[in-house]
Every structure is written in C-alpha cells, then in structure tokens.
Computed example of a mutant assay.
Amino acid sequence: MQLKDLVDNKVYTNPISEISIDNKSIINTINPHSYCEAKKDSEFTKALLSSDVLLPDGSGIVLASKILSGKTINKIAGADIHQYLLEQANLKGDKVFYLGASENTLQLIEKRIAKDYPNISVSSYSPPYKPEFTSTDTSKMLAAVNSFNPKILFVGMTAPKQEKWVYANQTSINANIVTSIGAVFDFYAGTVKRSSPFWIKLGLEWLPRLVREPKRLWKRNFVSTPLFLWDLLKTKCGI
C-alpha cells in the first residue's frame, strides 16, 4: 500500500451526503494505525483497497491528503457514517442489522434505535469471540444477516478482523450497504464514551480515549502514528 496512491486515488473526498444507501457498496474507514497494520497484512490491504468507499477516519489521513495531493478533505469517522446511514434508513423505513459485539451491547443498541430512529427495523447477532471464525461460525453469521435481509449491515468485530471477514464473504451477504465500524457499537450503546466534540474539532479525538484505555490504545498512538508520519515524510521527500 503506497500512501501517495492511497490519498490520490482511493480515500473518499466528497461530502458524506453524497453516499447513497441505494447503491450496493462496501464502506470501510482508514486511519494511520490501520494503514500501518495493512502494510504488514496483505489480506487487510486487499480488503481496504477493494472498498467502494474508503473514509478518511483520522486527522493523519486528512493531513496526508493535504500534503501529498493538495486536497483539503474532511475527516469522516465511523460514528459519522453510522449516524448518517441511520438517518437515511429512518427516512425510508429501511432495515438495519448489527453483526458483532456482545448480546448486552446489541440489546442496548436496539433499544436506542427504537427511540432515536422509530422508522427503522433492526436486528442483530453476536458472533463468538475468537481470533478467527470457523466455516460453521461464518455460516451462522450469514444466515442471521440474510434471513433478515437488511438494507444496511453494520459490522463491529474490531479491525482488521471485521474488514477481512466482509472481504472474504461479500458475495454471500444480502445487504445494500456493508460497513465495518468497530468501536462505534460501544459508543452508540453507551458502554464506551466517545470523545467530546471539543477534542474532535481539534483533531485530538484519540487523546481522551488513550487516557481512558492506555493498555489497548498505546500502540496505535505511540507506534503507528510515528511510523505513519515517517512514511508521510519519506513520501513527500521522495525517499
């Protein structure tokens, strides 16, 4: 994965309002950490680059676009695409499905959907917690999704597992929009607090999360971010 080619040709640059739920699409997000992880994982790279829409979910990606391509783009986080798609589904009375997380988290999501978006029909499935799914696991997951036949499928199983699972099974999924949004399941359920708009506007959404979850997030901030910035510098200087 080459950073210049990524920001020139793949990262989404249009307003979020131009994403249509009527077009069959796989929507993923990319940030400096997932960029660095994909460079070590060819299947993850394929999953990201095969996306119909690859959202710039990170101030580092926004910075790279400005420095390498001269494009001023807006960060679009997983929480942003989640809210936008729910608003669109609510207008049309569509069905949405949540695949991932615990039963408790999914119940909280369904309860909140009923309150926030009463025109949406919602269902969910909690897959087993394991590094890799068996063919039986995947069959059950697909059966749960396809029997509901949602317009939108939200997948939340952490990266890169979620993106790679969607990539491997995309032809078997009956949904118009499939988007992997990871931590958004917990944000929306209220089991994990998202950073406030103050930090988001500063481009520092990661900072309060790092303070709350240092063991889980230290690597992406103290390893991946410097590596990404070094790659950006090398690319800009033609090294």
Rank of each mutant, 00 (worst) to 15 (best):
P127A: 08
K111N: 15
L142P: 00
A89V: 05
E110W: 04
Q107H: 14
N90V: 11
A143P: 06
D94A: 13
K95F: 08
S123D: 15
G100H: 03
E103C: 05
L108T: 06
E110A: 15
K92V: 09
F97E: 03
E110L: 15
A144G: 05
N90P: 06
L91E: 14
L99K: 01
A114E: 14
A143L: 12
L91V: 14
V96N: 02
Y129M: 10
Y125D: 03
T105D: 11
L142K: 02
I109S: 04
S139L: 11
P131Y: 01
A143M: 12
N90R: 04
K140R: 13
K130H: 00
M141A: 03
G93D: 07
N119S: 11
A101V: 03
K130L: 01
A114Y: 06
G100T: 06
G93M: 07
D94F: 09
S121N: 12
Q107L: 10
D116I: 08
T136F: 11
L106T: 03
N119T: 08
E132Q: 09
K140H: 12
E103V: 15
A114H: 11
T136M: 11
N104L: 13
Y117M: 07
S139P: 05
K115Q: 14
Q107M: 12
D94L: 13
L108A: 13
